[in-house]
Design a protein around this nucleic acid. Structure first.
Lengths: 334, 334
DNA sequence: GATGGGCGGGGAAACGTTTCCGGGATGTGG
DNA sequence: CCACATCCCGGAAACGTTTCCCCGCCCATC
């Protein structure tokens, strides 16, 4: 534990026999004198100098850090995003800060507010809901922000969105084309953004396939495995003629798979099942679960790229990118 | 886009009609004059002052940031850790930086080296492997480090470990007690740390149950679903008398479940299956998969707590904590 | 009423960089 | 050979805080 303080640019300057300005220039490639560069580099190695990023940040007014704020990193969709955001940012020399806000809207606002402490150069935000206070905060942030998720059109902020409505439609159309006649839908809460969008998509899908919507085949529950299983069991008991179930996310669909098995129904023989989000669960379930991907990884990557462009000085008008959903068909609906 | 610069402590001082020292003291609770505090707070609100954490960091020599470095946040075990590390640190006012190093050992060393840039106050590191260069780097870090994973005893660094050897033993003993007579083992690569430990644990478990080890029932493959499935299929075809499979992680065990189903064997009737890591996959598989938890969440929490203690000035000798594994029995082995 | 102690607050230095500015050396053209 | 432009490098200021130090005030004590 050598308590000797870290060497600064001054020590380097002294050893190299030059001024600190020259050291700084040499290290930042702002000098043309090769001999100078060599001497400085030698001195750097000799004293073991490493620049203080904090001091650099103070002077240059940027930190090389970007924050990603979402509800819970445990959520598969956010996880996929992080996995793409991190390398994208890192390749450009940025470090990634993680903010799990929990289900706490205040916390999201706190993150936005704390941006003026400027310890980050930018933010990627996945808001649970967008309140007026969000909008207000977003209007006057000190650094660029990219929002992943739905955002009112008049908020001047880059925005990357999924289209779970079209995604749901895709699922329903696929089931209809596969020959299903009674397509049930187990949704999450209707007062959530995804719950609503998927509900609309389900109806659109049925309409597009020329089917009537039968409200008896629609259930609302939580986006959870147990909830999906329980709800599916009730639904299928009450309506044994159901020959397809669309779950509003993979957990619900997995629950439906379990319920079907318990009821002795064959998947996909008797009942086809499709989920949504295309999480790792889908590929390893039995039977492997067809699922609609909302392109979380792509959304993460695109958000990161948009942010990088802003940080690069691009001040074009805010962009609005929608990532199209895609259906991965596996055995559960084949 | 008001390009007006952020107000500094100087503006606050001017508005409040006091010196910047007094403002700083008032804001940091180092003054007893209530009137002063009130005036400063009023001025702060008036000009919309927010302290610059960068300037504070430069002066105070700490940043309020902690890094967590691991191979890939997509890995369920690391994910569980992050989910506990983040709130633990946040409660103490620290921000979390994420470093996914990829499978790149150089990158891990890079993270260690970059610590002297001191943009973080501490680091939690999950090394893939611990080389001599790791040890050397760990010996002379500028900030406290906690390592999650196996670490040579002579490295003076706090260390939190799982015990996958005992975990494997637990699984095997459970299978033996449940009545299994031919317990197969599908391991990951033997030249990885977990692969080796689980192999040893498997043998110990058999020994403890008074069984012979039959090398024919041991296979090595990758820690992946496809690999597990393929290997299980071969194993079970060659040895139809196997009545239990222990998979060295959940993915392998899930693969085994699929293979068994394809071979028309009932789980757990004909063959019992146990996995390891107790990931979310286990609970939703069919049948739900028994799995040994290595306490990732606990390890994350403990690592964070250890680090916080160091940051609090504790300079007791390095600690070595082993989190005991625990078996969650579900239907696949009941 | 003078003196000493305590305390609150202001001035200024310091943290470690980057960058502006200016001076001296060098080179070029008249 | 001089004048002028050019180029390098060193000095110093600045980024926005915290904190040391010291001064002046007030109160208490003799």
């Amino acid at each position: 534990m050598s308590q000797r303080r870290r060497p600064t640019i001054h020590e380097v300057a002294k050893v190299a026999g030059v001024s600190i300005s020259s050291v700084s220039r040499a290290l930042n490639g702002n000098t043309s004198n090769a001999d100078m560069v060599a001497r400085v580099n030698a001195a750097v190695r000799e004293v073991g100098y490493v620049p203080s990023v904090v001091a650099q940040s103070l002077k240059t007014r940027h930190t090389g850090q970007i924050a990603f704020a979402m509800e819970d990193i445990g959520n598969a969709a956010y996880l996929e995003m992080v996995r793409r955001i991190q390398p994208t940012l890192r390749d450009e020399g940025y470090r990634l800060l993680l903010h799990s806000t929990g289900a706490d809207v205040e916390d999201e606002l706190g993150v936005l507010a704390s941006l003026s402490q400027n310890y980050v150069d930018g933010l990627i935000l996945c808001p649970l809901r967008v309140t007026d206070r969000h909008v207000e905060a977003l209007r006057q942030t000190a650094v660029p922000v990219v929002v992943i998720g739905l955002l009112p059109d008049d908020v001047p902020v880059d925005n990357v969105r999924a289209d779970s409505r079209v995604g749901a439609q895709l699922a329903v159309q696929h089931l209809a084309e596969a020959g299903a006649r009674r397509i049930a839908f187990i949704d999450g809460p209707l007062d959530t953004v995804p719950g609503r969008a998927r509900y609309d998509g389900y109806r659109m899908g049925l309409a597009a396939a020329g089917r009537e919507t039968d409200d008896a085949l629609i259930r609302f529950t939580d986006f959870r495995f147990d909830a999906g299983r329980q709800t599916a069991r009730e639904l299928l008991t009450e309506h044994p003629d159901v020959d397809a179930v669309f779950g509003a996310n993979d957990l619900i669909a997995m629950g439906a798979l379990h319920a079907l098995r318990e009821l002795g129904r064959d998947v996909p023989g008797d009942v086809r099942v499709v989920g949504m989000d295309d999480t790792p669960l889908a590929a390893t379930s039995f039977p492997p679960l067809s699922s609609v991907s909302l392109g979380s990884a792509d959304r993460g990557r695109i958000a990161a790229e948009l942010l990088l462009r802003r940080l690069d000085g691009d001040d074009a008008p805010p962009e609005r990118v929608t990532v199209p959903p895609s259906l991965t068909v596996r055995e559960s609906s084949r």
